[in-house]
Amino acid sequence: GPIILQSYRVIADFEKNSKSELAAKNGDVVEVVEKSENGWWFCQLRNKRGWMPAAYLEPLDGPDESEEQDPNYEGDLHITTKDYTGELDDELNLKEGENVEVIHKLLDGWWVVRKGSITGYFPAMYLQKSGETAP
């Protein structure tokens, strides 16, 4: 049978920065084809397709629908796969190969991680579960 895609409302203008991204305006309604854990969702808007940041989308059925996981305060061990320098105050600066504990895996691809006594946001894209090899 037909595949029913979930509809999401775009909550802020998004301009694309690479060819694979999909630009959309505040108020547009897109259909989500695939959700990547790193916060990029593959969407279609009219006759166009491309990746959009999950943070710019909210379910059309209402903001109550939550797919968000609960935080895990014990921490889930991960290793950083790339150097990253935070751009906002609440982000962590980490080098490649550092061990961190993931506290909260947020759908927007910015996970709450703990390094020693410091906690902040870090891109899920640059994290890999400890003990697993890169895909």
């Binding site: 998004f14 690479s18 593959f42 640059y126």
Partner: peptide
């Protein structure tokens, strides 16, 4: 076929959304 996602992390939530979450 699904294309590969962009190589950079997605942008943080728009400023107006971050304020709402606080």
């Amino acid at each position: 076929t699904i294309k590969r996602p962009p190589e950079n992390p997605p942008p943080r939530p728009p400023a107006e959304v971050r304020r709402k979450q606080v």
